[in-house]
Amino acid sequence: MTYRVRIENADGEVVTIEISADELREKGLTLEELLPPNARIVEVEEVEP
């Protein structure tokens, strides 16, 4: 499974990243732990691999 994640950074700019569930598991991280300081998740969407 892959996630498309929209993130708002500290400057108010919204960027989109895609990350797979396998990648998260391998790194032992959650989506929140990948965020840079002062950023927030705006939207998470599951996409087909």
Rank of each mutant, 00 (worst) to 15 (best):
M1R: 12
M1A: 07
M1P: 10
M1L: 14
T2S: 12
T2F: 15
Y3M: 04
Y3R: 01
V5G: 00
V5Y: 03
V5R: 00
R6T: 15
R6C: 04
I7P: 00
E8L: 12
N9F: 15
N9Q: 14
A10F: 12
A10H: 10
D11E: 10
D11K: 10
D11L: 09
G12C: 04
G12L: 04
G12T: 01
E13C: 07
V15L: 13
V15D: 07
V15A: 08
V15Q: 13
T16Y: 07
T16D: 07
I17N: 00
I17K: 02
I19R: 00
I19V: 10
S20H: 09
S20T: 11
S20Q: 06
A21G: 09
A21R: 08
A21M: 09
A21E: 11
D22H: 11
D22I: 11
D22N: 12
E23T: 11
E23P: 01
E23M: 12
L24C: 03
L24H: 01
L24I: 08
L24A: 02
L24E: 00
L24G: 01
R25K: 11
R25I: 13
K27G: 08
K27W: 06
K27M: 07
G28A: 05
L29H: 05
L29I: 12
T30K: 09
T30S: 10
L31I: 12
E32G: 07
E32I: 10
E32D: 08
E33K: 06
E33C: 03
E33T: 06
E33I: 05
L34E: 01
L35D: 00
L35S: 01
L35R: 01
P36Y: 03
P37C: 05
P37S: 08
N38D: 14
A39T: 15
R40I: 15
R40D: 03
R40E: 05
R40L: 13
I41L: 07
I41G: 01
I41S: 02
I41D: 01
E43M: 11
E43L: 13
E43K: 10
V44G: 01
E45K: 11
E45S: 09
E45M: 14
E46Y: 14
E46H: 10
E46V: 15
V47E: 03
E48I: 14
P49V: 14
